[in-house]
């Protein structure tokens, strides 16, 4: 499903230094997770409050030199999963909203509200996650995760993955080009042998890519040894928590608590 190009990872927005962008990566990660947690804790059907949180998100984005339009445009990639929620429309019993022609299935009011709630909250959450990655360089994000006590090995491994993502994807695309060059009709959707044959060719490509990857990891390991590596990837401190970090997290936490209480008890 990953079709994002490498330029997506290095959007010029990451150069922004105003608003949220100037915070420590640890604060940004916590704020994004807290925002999504708050949304998840809200009861279904509170569309006014969802809207309020969306506005908060858009204001934060704008203050950080990130256009909300960009968030919306990128959030589309998360929509397909909404299909998984479609059944809510039919399975929740309640007052009938409308009856589908031909099939004769009822859509209940309650079902429609539940469906809309899940999809809306999911959509807003995705935009919060997008804002996080736009306002944080990947290397800083990794550093922040380690600062939040993610195991160092996991973060180091992820650092390598990020580094070699595009290297291996371009190797994969060279293999794809070679496949296309040898089977002219494949891109038209049909041809290129039977389904079984096509699966096998894909498997061979995957297999040879895997061999190359393992050999590359050996060479990288040697390159690391040659520069004094002894089993631990060390990095320098990049950031320190400043008062603005503490303030923003405090304000966010209080707002979240109030919103959740209001939504449940008013």
């Amino acid at each position: 499903m990953i079709e994002a190009t490498n330029t997506d990872l290095n959007s010029p927005k990451t150069e922004s230094q105003s608003g949220l962008a100037s915070l420590d990566p640890r604060s940004k990660i916590l704020l994004a997770c807290g925002f999504i947690l708050t949304l998840s804790l809200l009861p279904p059907g509170e569309f006014l409050i969802y809207g309020l949180l969306l506005i908060v998100l858009y204001i934060s984005a704008s203050l950080s030199d990130c256009s909300p339009v960009y968030l919306v445009r990128r959030s589309v990639i998360a929509l397909p999963f909404a299909f998984a929620a479609v059944t809510l429309l039919f399975t929740i019993p309640g007052e009938s909203l409308l009856t589908l022609p031909i099939l004769g299935i009822d859509i209940s009011v309650e079902g429609a509200i539940r469906f809309a709630s899940i999809v809306t909250r999911s959509w807003i959450s995705v935009q919060a996650a997008i804002l996080l990655i736009i306002l944080t360089k990947v290397a800083d994000l990794m550093w922040g995760l380690q600062g939040l006590h993610t195991p160092a090995i996991l973060v180091s491994v992820a650092g390598f993955t990020y580094r070699y993502l595009d290297v291996l994807r371009s190797e994969a695309s060279r293999l794809r080009t070679a496949r296309q060059a040898r089977s002219a009709t494949l891109s038209a959707g049909r041809g290129g042998g039977t389904l079984l044959w096509r699966a096998r060719v894909t498997g061979w490509m995957v297999g040879s890519l895997m061999i190359r990857s393992m050999e590359r990891s050996e060479r990288i390991y040697n390159a690391m040894l040659a520069r004094g590596y002894t089993g631990e990837v060390k990095t320098l401190t990049r950031f320190e928590l400043r008062s603005r970090d503490y303030w923003s997290m405090l304000v966010a936490a209080l707002t979240a608590v109030i919103i959740i209480l209001v939504a449940h008890f008013l």
């Binding site: 990953i2 390598f160 580094r163 993502l165 994969a172 590359r216 990891s217």
Partner: peptide, 12 residues
């Protein structure tokens, strides 16, 4: 790390 990058590439 490289194996994880490989999985991304293989998925493409």
């Amino acid at each position: 790390g490289v194996m994880a990058a490989f999985v991304f590439a293989a998925q493409s």
